[in-house]
Design a protein around this nucleic acid. Sequence first.
DNA 1: CATGAATGAGCCTTCATTCAT
DNA 2: GATGAATGAAGGCTCATTCAT
Lengths: 197, 197, 197, 197
Amino acid sequence: MRSDKRERLLKAAVKVFARDGFFHAKVETIAKEAGVATGTTYLYFDNKDDILISIFEEEMIPIIEGMKKELAVYKGPKEKLIAFVHRFMKMAEENPDMTQLLEIELRQSSKFMHGYKSTKFKEYLDIISDAFVLGQETGVFRQDVQPTLLKQILFGALDQITMNWTLSKSKKFSLQQSAEQILNVVLKGILIKDTEQ
Amino acid sequence: MRSDKRERLLKAAVKVFARDGFFHAKVETIAKEAGVATGTTYLYFDNKDDILISIFEEEMIPIIEGMKKELAVYKGPKEKLIAFVHRFMKMAEENPDMTQLLEIELRQSSKFMHGYKSTKFKEYLDIISDAFVLGQETGVFRQDVQPTLLKQILFGALDQITMNWTLSKSKKFSLQQSAEQILNVVLKGILIKDTEQ
Amino acid sequence: MRSDKRERLLKAAVKVFARDGFFHAKVETIAKEAGVATGTTYLYFDNKDDILISIFEEEMIPIIEGMKKELAVYKGPKEKLIAFVHRFMKMAEENPDMTQLLEIELRQSSKFMHGYKSTKFKEYLDIISDAFVLGQETGVFRQDVQPTLLKQILFGALDQITMNWTLSKSKKFSLQQSAEQILNVVLKGILIKDTEQ
Amino acid sequence: MRSDKRERLLKAAVKVFARDGFFHAKVETIAKEAGVATGTTYLYFDNKDDILISIFEEEMIPIIEGMKKELAVYKGPKEKLIAFVHRFMKMAEENPDMTQLLEIELRQSSKFMHGYKSTKFKEYLDIISDAFVLGQETGVFRQDVQPTLLKQILFGALDQITMNWTLSKSKKFSLQQSAEQILNVVLKGILIKDTEQ
DNA sequence: CATGAATGAGCCTTCATTCAT
DNA sequence: GATGAATGAAGGCTCATTCAT
């Protein structure tokens, strides 16, 4: 049996950090959740901070890969953005813990861990700007909007909405319906020809 | 002289929480920054959490008042939104500490302080949806977008951009220029008649 | 009431370090022995190492002062050495804890605390070499022995004997008798004129 | 090839204990240094303490044998003492790690390992007192000095000087020169007839 | 009201020792 | 015998909160 303890610890940490918050979370809790002894954690991670950083770097990889594969299916930049938003929402629905980490704990940590910035997270967001640039180059999207800014606008909107969704107990509004409306607004806002959607 | 210790403590806490983060910040540091003894803090606040909550509630009041006064000048919903965005950016430039708190610490608090929801912060965001509803009622804005959602889209975008600006040391890009582009996209996205802006 | 907590902690630490050894000693034990809470220790010392270093620096001061005053009474270098040895033994008898620290724990620490060398301890030993140099200058002691070496010989002998004495439970042999014999040997070894002693 | 793991572990432990100190030294480090797995250590030793004690007992054997053989060459007690001191210094120069252990860690162990007294170490020191007793019996050395005390005086002096030499990085002074001076002082101090040396 | 020294519960981390392979 | 991953007890240190002055 290959030891999967590191992976189990990462999964457990996602859950515990999301539920308790990074600062309130105890290493002991994570270890218990992973079914190992406390000390075992330190065989795989340098310290508590390292667990969080490892989550951001390693758990993001399949997410980014999946997203890129998804978008490769679509050729049009508009279709790519639509796919991005829908998959983003799907991801949030299916992985609320990881979503919360990205939304809440990453903000905390990015400030304090001696200027640590998740490169993987940046790579994730760049998927948006890449699609937008493609649209600008093919004359579909407006030229007078900076890709970096559009990336932040769209991600900011998605982030805000999914955060509210994950924090609300009721989950009465659907993320997929929200996705439609966001796309309604943003696509209309950036498309040159006002085609019906 | 009426004792202004409470106010001094709040101002100091904004600064210290923004710089050190809520969890790393020590009550002693806040007290020193305010020029009072550590114990004095507990004459004005129940505990550390209460300081943060009080910031969200009390420091928001003049911000909300100012914003509402600003928007009262403008009658048109579109103009109201434009004014909101510009003042939001101005606020971020002039009060980076308070901005960081709202962006980073409020998220944490929303989750962990036994279901704390800042009513004042909600009131702040409702300024957006109120203006949007007005636009819908007067036939200026699209009907097929929920005000609550539009509020989150716009705030999410503003939040994301100001956060990046606050955290970047260089501050090379101007928030006012960003404001223009956000408005370009969002207004085009929600206006029924595509007037030149 | 002036707070004497620092002094109480130092005294307690001497006792606990001597009894349990530096590494086995718990900060909690020292605090309890001093009648304060564990955390209080850290109001007066940076960490556990700092307690040990502070003992060496601060507790040595009165010992050195007392020794110097004692020796100032005697004018002859031979008499000074005799006085030194007797007082050294008296000190060991009266302060077995401090003696053990100097003999056992100081050796441990001097190696590991990033090259820390107790200046006070050196000052203590220099009393021997100063008296010896005086004897050489006045033609009483041999010229062909380096003062630094003689210092180490005499201190080494005293240190070894007192260590055995403190470690032996029975204390069957008297340190004062040992003092006589050490002086017999060493003085005969360094005096030029073999006077009767 | 007979398994030499136990011997390799002992050699490694001498090195690691001398470098890191007994308490800071990790069993894992010793095992690595010996080229075996951590757990293997416990096939040859009961626990960490047992490693140190085994060093004191087993590594001392050849040292003692060598010393006894060396001294057997000389018939006169004075010559025996001279030989002892020179060989002691040579040992210190050639085995600084073992020397440090005897000087520093043995003291700790004597105190804390439930009354552990190294019989081998005692046997080592008894070489001095045996030679001294011989000298007393043959009328060469003074009668008014107890052999046990003289043993401690001489060993204390040697111990102190070699310790300083071991801990000093520069090694600027020669142990052999120090040996001459110690002998100058001590022999003059104990010889009945003040012969030229 | 104000002070700030004192408290002590709580948690991260280490590492000697074990044991399944 | 040999391995080295796993264990979990233990302790140094922090800091929110209290309270005697």
